[in-house]
Design a protein around this nucleic acid. Structure first.
Length: 217
DNA sequence: AACTGATCCAACCGCCTTAAG
DNA sequence: CCTTAAGGCGGTTGGATCAGT
């Protein structure tokens, strides 16, 4: 039997909501069957995370949210889920949609912020990194620096960023965005000698550890 | 009122990573 | 090791809505 596609009905939303309230998030492969939904697991997960989850914020982005988004985007590249993780109530889909909408309209954020024409510069994207490291990770196999999992945005680990203060912590860190970005790019360039975009070539310091190192100095 | 182009945003798709067998 | 299933992510699509003519 074909799974349903397209917009969700109120009934489907309610079924999913009921299921999550009863069983909690996760085990998405079981959700469609157990909730009585004729949807694929991904569709259920997407619907919950982007629409039904209780703390989701709707409406326009506030100025400080946009500001933070710009800084995080500059620092992290298109890591929408990470960026959204620092914007309470916003989903990665929201952030992604917001950003691409602005890009389509060809509005440069520097104009919004500074009333200056955009500078044409080469964008250096810091490549995505896995959220956790394992020994089997191919690019660590030759030069492992840590055997502990590193988790971005998880306060449970002693090596993870303190996120009790949420955005404030990051805002403070990002005050130094230019310094950080320049340092980071230079550091990456020196590590890989040519291609700063290549994760394979040993970019091993994650955001938090990098910031920790910075803080110590 | 009717048409059209622009914009928004929910949803889909394909790919990657990880864990388990 | 290899395979497979599941979770998760970013890019893209397309229908709905809005704004201008």
């Amino acid at each position: 039997m074909e799974v349903r596609k397209g917009s969700w009905t109120k009934e489907e939303d309610q079924l999913l909501r009921n299921y999550i309230e009863k069983h909690g998030e996760g085990r998405w492969h079981k959700v469609p069957f157990q909730a009585g939904l004729n949807r694929c697991r991904k569709s259920c997960r997407m619907r919950w995370l982007n629409y039904l989850k209780p703390n989701i914020k709707r409406g326009d982005f506030a100025e400080d949210e946009v500001d933070l988004m710009i800084r995080l985007r500059k620092l992290l590249g298109n890591r929408w889920s990470l960026i959204a993780g620092r914007l309470p109530g916003r989903t990665s889909n929201d952030v992604k949609n917001y950003w691409s909408a602005r890009r389509r309209r060809n509005i440069d954020f520097s104009i919004m912020k500074n009333n200056k024409p955009p500078e044409i510069t080469k964008t250096t994207v810091i490549r995505p990194r896995p959220r956790t490291f394992t020994k089997s990770l191919h690019y660590l196999s030759s030069k492992a620096t840590t055997s502990k999992p590193i988790e971005l945005g998880n306060s449970s680990s002693s090596t993870s960023p303190p996120i009790e203060n949420g955005n404030e912590e990051w805002k403070t860190l990002l005050e130094e965005e230019d310094v950080l970005t320049n340092f980071w790019v230079e550091d990456m360039a020196s590590m890989s000698s040519i291609d700063v975009n290549s994760t394979e070539q040993g970019f091993e310091m994650d955001l938090w550890h990098f910031l920790q190192e910075e803080a110590r100095q």
